[in-house]
Amino acid sequence: MIITKRRDVKELQENIKDYKSFFLLGCSECATLCATGGEPEIKALKEELEKQGKEVTGSFVAKTGCQVLGTKVELKKSSKEALDKADCILVMSCGAGTQTSVELFEDKPVYPTNDSLFLGNMTRMQMFDERCSLCGECILDGTGGICPITACPKGLLNGPCGGTNEGKCEVSSEIDCAWVRIYNRLSKINRLKDMEQIVEPKNWASHRKPMNLNTREKASSGKDKPV
């Protein structure tokens, strides 16, 4: 899921100082699990804004805020009037969710209430860590399933650097050395030979921004068939 945290309050206040009425849009998926865009957070932000003398015309928790069409349909059904009345939309999900609203509301300012941090695994309630960098070409097949592009602050592909320190990373003693983890894992599954392979420089062209993907079958042209 996409991990988010609340943006600095002062920055948001600066963003919205010219506006009086707001529509608050949360998301039932990642942002709800991160406690940045579910019902309780919407309620809290509403109270905050009202304390500042602002008006909240309405709010909604989108099912999946990064799904453009679905969100459009939901909002039209549930919140048309409240949206029309609002000067400004505050999106309480990730950067993708914010840009759904930017696409849907061409003539209204849209501001994010959250910073988008990373693609995360949830380890416990409201505890997240980053394991995948969405780099475009998966290398987990050669690393015992642990991603060094993500888990190593240098993204090293051929083993630990000189900063490895009793299983910890030079960057922080709170980070386990990715390559010691990979070594231990490969030892356990009897695949240490995978670590002997010299890994060539990564092809970053497979991660060229902005990425997009279309796997729809286009019957008319026969192009873009799903693989």
Partner: peptide
């Protein structure tokens, strides 16, 4: 470069060999 006193040593040696 190589770190002869790295702990654990084995992953360091594998990189040395590479």
């Amino acid at each position: 470069v190589v770190t002869p006193e790295a702990n654990p040593l084995e992953p360091q040696l594998m990189k040395f060999k590479k």
